[in-house]
Amino acid sequence: MDTALNSALLVLILLQGKHMFADYFLQTPRMLAGRSTYVHLGRTEHAALHAILSFLVLKICGATLLFSVIICVVEWVAHYHIDWVKGCYSQRKKHGPTDAAYWRAFGVDQLMHQLTYVAMIWAFVRYGI
């Protein structure tokens, strides 16, 4: 198998594990509160947690320091705004887990995060190693 493909698959697997822990195991009450407020310390911390863990993934997989820093700053900005948009939508619509629209918004949010990872993996293979 091609080395670039192997590297891309390893980064994908590690980013998926990172995403699960950062989104489902490591969120604090402050990270979960006030999701529709634009300037929000909890969302800043949550997006930073994702970026820090992604930085570790990229470094483990052999990415250069400069590339890792740049791509993780971009991920931080993207993650922050993806979550903010979902928070605004959820606040405005007042949907909860028993509403189908809640799960559609949740699915779109997760899709956007996964597409961010696709872009990160493309950049990693193209520029990071």
Rank of each mutant, 00 (worst) to 15 (best):
R43N: 05
S54Y: 06
I60P: 11
G96F: 05
A51I: 05
S68T: 00
A63P: 00
A51W: 02
Y80H: 06
I60M: 11
V74R: 00
G87T: 09
I82F: 14
E45C: 07
Y80N: 07
A100P: 14
H50N: 02
S54K: 02
I60Q: 06
Q91S: 10
P97D: 12
L58E: 03
I60F: 12
I60T: 15
L58S: 02
H79K: 08
H46F: 04
Q91F: 09
A101G: 10
G62I: 01
L65R: 09
L53V: 13
F55G: 14
V73G: 05
A101P: 13
H95Q: 10
V77H: 00
Q91E: 11
W76V: 01
C88V: 13
A48D: 09
I71G: 00
I60L: 11
I82R: 01
L56A: 15
W84I: 03
S68D: 00
W84K: 02
R43D: 09
H81E: 05
V77M: 10
G42D: 10
L56F: 14
S90H: 06
L58I: 00
I82T: 04
V85G: 04
I82D: 00
S90Q: 14
A63D: 04
C88R: 15
I82V: 11
L66Y: 15
L56E: 09
S54T: 12
V69M: 06
F55I: 08
L58K: 03
A100G: 11
Y80Q: 14
L49N: 06
I82C: 06
A101N: 12
I52V: 12
H50Q: 05
V57E: 02
A63I: 03
A78L: 10
S68G: 01
F67H: 03
L58F: 04
H50M: 08
V77T: 03
V69E: 10
H95E: 12
A78C: 08
R92T: 15
I60S: 04
K94I: 05
A78W: 09
I71N: 03
F55N: 07
Y80C: 04
Q91W: 12
E75F: 02
V57F: 12
A100K: 14
L49G: 07
I82E: 07
L58Y: 14
V69A: 09
Y89P: 04
I60Y: 07
F67S: 02
V85T: 10
S68E: 00
D99A: 12
V73M: 13
D83Q: 05
T44M: 14
L65I: 11
T98F: 13
G62S: 04
K93E: 15
L66K: 15
E75C: 07
V73I: 15
W76R: 01
F55R: 12
L53E: 00
L58N: 06
I52K: 07
Y89S: 13
I70R: 05
G96R: 11
S54P: 08
P97S: 09
V85H: 02
